[in-house]
Design a protein around this nucleic acid. Sequence first.
DNA 1: AATCTTCTTTAGAATAATTATAAACAACGA
DNA 2: TCGTTGTTTATAATTATTCTAAAGAAGATT
Lengths: 136, 136
Amino acid sequence: MNSKQEFIEKLRNSSLRPTKQRINICEVLFNRDKTFHFTINDLFNLIKDKTGEKVSLATVYNTVHAFHKKGYLKEIPINSNQTYFDTNVTDHHHFFDVKEEKLIDLKNEDVGPIEIQKSIPGKKIKSVEVLVKLED
Amino acid sequence: MNSKQEFIEKLRNSSLRPTKQRINICEVLFNRDKTFHFTINDLFNLIKDKTGEKVSLATVYNTVHAFHKKGYLKEIPINSNQTYFDTNVTDHHHFFDVKEEKLIDLKNEDVGPIEIQKSIPGKKIKSVEVLVKLED
DNA sequence: AATCTTCTTTAGAATAATTATAAACAACGA
DNA sequence: TCGTTGTTTATAATTATTCTAAAGAAGATT
Ligand SMILES: [Mn+2]
Ligand SMILES: [Mn+2]
Ligand SMILES: [Zn+2]
Ligand SMILES: [Zn+2]
């Protein structure tokens, strides 16, 4: 487990001070095999569970938004009372299991290229995201 | 303007009593040339402006959800603090102008068919929606 | 190492969208 | 008209998120 040093550097390179709290959040978010989807509350609980240390809710919000701004996290647009984030910041699409309130990644090849045949003067495309809602 | 009778029937057919408030909301939502996108607060203000009568915010919420449940309105998934609704309940996609916080319809032919090449056991696809975010 | 500056964390308050409550009211059917 | 049931409304409650300001920690300067 040598990730701690990497996270410290990553934070420094982002002009974010490597605090104990931020390093713990990095461990929970980025020290894992697969990317994952979470809400602030999910993360808040995971930190306690996985690191044994409590980080205040305000800090979780602050840090998630800092990481989001730096491009280390992505926000997923779905209708939910809570905001969903994704550690997979590449362009990709999602299933959303409405009943379980769970996001599942779709690879780009599972969807195929999407060509938008319309443009709005003065505006350019920032992202194209497909959301596939699932029911039983 | 003979729409009022139609709305009364529409409401009766949906086992919703045709109250003054609901008819006013129907006029604002459905008595127009083009479909449109709105938030609850947009609608609340439009009702006052267009009908001259005030409907309580609680009733606006109640009615929008009743219409949504009946399939007369669609919820658009975007990351916003407010929920966006659409009077266009057909399958279609959207631009979202992030700066202006405005939705713009995309015709299906502007996007092309989307074939999802992955399936989740026990689940079926309920909807496939594309959201194209726009920036300046 | 001591000091200074700047950034960060935190508890708690504030905000804002939405939902719940329950009493007054209106629509409907008998 | 009367009784029943559904609806509206003001207001309170809830909940996610943001704000505030004081205490603490990190980094730079001596
Ligand atoms: Mn994802
Ligand atoms: Mn639309
Ligand atoms: Zn953010
Ligand atoms: Zn609804």
